[in-house]
């Protein structure tokens, strides 16, 4: 077997809507290496969260469905599993950290009980053992006085503490893969730093692989080994993190990197921008969608660009107008 824990191949996920079938994820492929962190970056609506939810099959029902492709996890195709089998994988072998801890937690149950659930479901423990394990998990995510906190309800905790509980739940069964979907977006910057530091430490300690979804390129740079850049349902570029920041090849990646305000740039200067905006899912062209945003016309809009390897592990959607040095 390869050293990849997860291999996504041409994943297609669509939503059945009144306006027809909308492809939110359109033939997405990437690998997650064992023990490493893969970052998925892109703007809202680019399909990064839908990709993640497709992996664990938590798509909104009945509208969202995987229409094609494979999700190879430790040799098995998750897309082909029966719902019951998938439930055993989820929470046990794959943990999920959601963005909004208040929606991930049940407001009417004590956090110790919610944590116990993972152990009762997947580990056949007695309630007492599960409670004891839950306290250990709270200690692991550095919640002070875990014996007391286990009896708290979610609303009694601060935002940062709640996110720690969500992390504890995701990691309770020591999964091989953790999917963190914007885990710090709702948090203040000082708390974000604490949470990312915690996740990073636990990942090293427990030897997990991770998919980290974010729109923040700073978070990507500091926490990921490999990066996937998504635009309008597709991967436009993927590469090891240093390579991507040093040699971005796709115009969209370059635009993203250039448009973030940095502390070093002098105040009140004009920022480079990516003109236009993403077209709606129903209006996307079959060809290069970034060309569509740039208002270009012609052949590139009609034919889907091929994804080519332009350097070691560096892949780019090879549109002649958008990819530098890739087109031949």
């Amino acid at each position: 077997m390869s050293d990849n824990i997860l291999e996504l191949r041409r994943l297609v996920t669509a939503f059945d809507t009144e306006g027809g079938l909308l492809r939110a994820v359109d033939e997405v492929s990437f690998d997650v290496r064992k023990g490493r962190t893969l970052g998925i970056v892109g703007e809202s609506g680019c399909g990064k969260s839908v990709t993640a939810m497709s992996i664990v099959r938590l798509l909104p029902q009945p509208a969202g469905n995987i229409l094609g492709g494979e999700v190879r996890f430790k040799g098995r195709d998750l897309a082909a599993l029966k719902p019951g089998e998938m439930r055993r994988v989820r929470g046990d072998e794959i943990g999920v950290i959601f963005q909004e801890p208040m929606t991930a937690l049940n407001p009417v149950h004590r956090i110790g009980r919610q944590l116990s659930e993972c152990f009762l479901q997947h580990r056949r423990m007695s309630k007492r053992e599960a409670w004891r394990e839950s306290i250990e998990m709270l200690r692991l995510v550095r919640i002070p006085a875990p014996e007391l906190r286990a009896g708290d309800f979610p609303h009694q905790l601060s935002g940062g503490m709640r996110q720690r509980v969500v992390i504890a739940m995701a990691l309770a069964c020591r999964p091989d893969l953790v999917i963190a979907d914007e885990p710090t977006t709702a948090l203040d910057v000082t708390v974000q730093a604490q949470i990312l530091d915690l996740i990073k430490g636990l990942q090293a300690e427990l030897g997990m692989s991770m998919i980290l979804i974010t729109h923040d390129l700073g978070v990507i740079a500091e926490n990921c080994d490999d990066v996937v850049v998504m635009y309008a349902g597709r991967v436009v570029e993927r590469a090891p993190v240093r390579e991507l920041f040093a040699n971005p090849r796709h115009a969209y990646t370059k635009g993203l990197l250039a448009s973030i305000p940095r502390l070093e740039t002098p105040s009140k200067t004009v920022l480079p921008v990516i003109p236009g905006m993403v077209a709606g899912l129903a209006d996307l062209v079959p060809g290069c969608r970034f060309c569509q945003r740039m208002g270009r016309e012609g052949a590139t809009l009609r034919e889907r660009p091929v994804v080519r390897e332009v350097g070691p592990d560096h892949w780019v959607e090879d549109c002649p107008a958008c990819a530098e040095g890739g087109a031949r």
Binding site: V189, T190, Q192, A193, L196, D216, L217, G218, V219, I220, A221, E222, N223, V241, R242, F245, A246, L257, I260, R262, L263
Partner: peptide
């Protein structure tokens, strides 16, 4: 606390 957009 601001994450640095520079992996090097």
């Amino acid at each position: 606390a601001i994450p640095e957009p520079d992996p090097t």
